[in-house]
Amino acid sequence: MRIEIRDVAGENCVTLAEGQKLYELIHPELEKALPVELDFNGCQVFASPFFNAAIGQLLRDQPPDRLNSLLRFQHLSPGGHRLLSRVIDNSKQYYSNEALRSATDQAILGESDEAEV
C-alpha cells in the first residue's frame, strides 16, 4: 500500500488528529504483514503530535523489526526525518518500559515528600 501523506494531512503534518487518521490507515496493513510506503512529497511542516499518533503509536503492538521491514518513508525532509527518529526513540521507551513513567513520577513525588520533612 502506498499513501500520499499530503492527501491525508495536507502540507502541515502537525496535529494529533491527522496523525491518528494516518495511523488508522497504516495499522491494519501492518497487522496483515503487508508493506506500507509513506510518501511525504509536498509535506512541509512536521510536529511531534502528528508523528506520535501516526508512527510512534505503532510500537504499541508492532515489533521494531517488523516496522523496519514493512514501513518505508519517501521524500521526508531532513528535519522531518530527525523529528520522526526522536519520536520513535521516545515511543520505544514509552511502550517497552511502562514502568519508566511511574518511576519518573515517583521520583518527583519522593522529592516533594523529602522537601516537606
Binding site: 511542516v45 512536521f46 503530535p49
Partner: peptide, 16 residues
C-alpha cells in the same frame, strides 16, 4: 524554506 518550515514546526509545539 526548509529551515523556515522546520522552525515553524518546532514553534507549533507551543500551540499544540
Amino acid at each position: 524554506p526548509d529551515l523556515r518550515n522546520e522552525v515553524a514546526g518546532k514553534v507549533w509545539e507551543i500551540y499544540a
